[in-house]
């Protein structure tokens, strides 16, 4: 925030938007209900820590989904990409890294990460090329690449897991620094730059503008095809980070981890105020939505409810929030 900002402007910048207010109200209501139902059982260090361990996977994947959504697109290949790049990393770890020590071990770690991200980048560029240059609708292009990428992963591993990683990787998934889970730190380290890219860079502004009207952006001297290419590249790289975190948490990689997350990431993004038609959305809203979803999940778990009821509640929450919004609109029209 620069110093030249006038006072009202500064207040305006700090003021939460209507989406944020609605999510805050929902979070408050949920906290109240769960406090009454669970009390101490929810608000203790263990429960909070377990939430902090679980949130990052869905969180990073949702970020990977959010960027294409913001541009008016969609990326169905994020989970497949996460798994294939995790498998690439796992392969290098287990084949080159085993038994190495010192500098060589470090070199192997770097090589493993690099190969994972290279795989992701290739998928992202393929998606971007097919969407931007061939004009295929994002949902169809990524539906195809999702099937193919997952197919490659299954073909290479025959559906088996690759496991056994160096301690550093396991720490990434299960360790903590000063009581804060490493996975959460990774999430923050990823979410902050994404928030900055979307909210504070020319690219972010262009992505949102593209979400509303790509042709008008192209007429303004911006190479929108390269923008689209970057969107799907970014999405794939974020998926690779998610793959790394999942791999670290399970201490194994597999072609089919986290598949149930795919449609949930769209749910989380839309709940977080990202317009599914594109053009509008903030990382802050998405994070709020993730916290709400995680809170429901943990509370349901503590109440002894099945994880599937959580799934149902997630779907219901999105419909309910939208429904309340519509009801408010309707009332505003009726009441002077």
């Amino acid at each position: 925030m620069s110093l030249s900002m006038t006072r009202p402007a500064r207040i305006a910048a700090l003021r939460p938007g209507p989406v944020m207010l609605r999510l805050l109200a929902l979070l408050g209501a949920l906290l109240l209900v769960f406090a009454l139902l669970l009390g101490e059982r929810l608000f203790n260090a263990t429960a909070v820590r377990s939430m902090a361990f679980q949130l990052p996977e869905l969180g990073i994947l949702s970020l990977a989904m959010m960027i294409p959504l913001l541009s008016g697109g969609l990326d169905l290949s994020i989970i497949a990409t996460a798994n294939l790049s995790a498998l690439a990393m796992a392969f290098v770890f287990t084949h080159l890294g085993a038994g190495q020590a010192g500098m060589m071990a470090l070199a192997c770690d770097v090589a493993a990460l690099a190969s994972g991200f290279a795989v992701a980048a290739a998928i992202g560029l393929l998606n971007g090329y097919v969407i931007a240059y061939l004009g295929v609708s994002p949902i169809l292009a990524t539906l195809g690449s999702m099937t193919m990428v997952k197919g490659i992963a299954i073909g290479l591993t025959h559906g088996n897991v690759i496991s056994g990683f160096p301690a550093g990787i396991v720490f990434l998934g299960n360790g903590s620094v000063l009581g804060v889970p490493m996975a959460l730190i990774v999430f923050v380290l990823v979410a902050l730059p994404v928030a900055v890219i979307i909210g504070r860079t020319p690219l972010g502004a262009i992505i949102a503008m593209c979400g509303s009207n790509q042709e008008a952006v192209r007429f303004s001297g911006i190479d929108t095809r390269r923008v689209v290419l970057r969107i799907y590249l970014l999405s794939a790289l974020l998926s690779a980070v998610a793959g790394l975190v999942m791999m670290a948490r399970f201490n194994s990689a597999n072609a089919a981890y986290g598949e149930s997350y795919l449609l949930v990431t769209i749910l989380a993004a839309v709940l977080g105020g990202i317009d599914p038609a594109g053009g509008f959305g903030k990382v802050g809203g998405l994070v709020m939505a993730l916290v709400i979803l995680q809170l429901i999940s943990t509370a349901a778990n503590l109440l002894g409810m099945s994880q599937f009821l959580t799934l149902a509640l997630w779907g219901a929450i999105l419909l309910a929030v939208t429904g309340v919004g519509r009801l408010a609109d309707w009332l505003r029209l009726r009441l002077p």
């Binding site: 949102a208 503008m209 509303s212 009207n213 042709e215 008008a216 952006v217 007429f219 053009g279």
Partner: peptide
């Protein structure tokens, strides 16, 4: 409407 401006933004 469709090429000059991004109306929703």
């Amino acid at each position: 409407l469709s090429l000059g401006l991004v109306m929703e933004q």
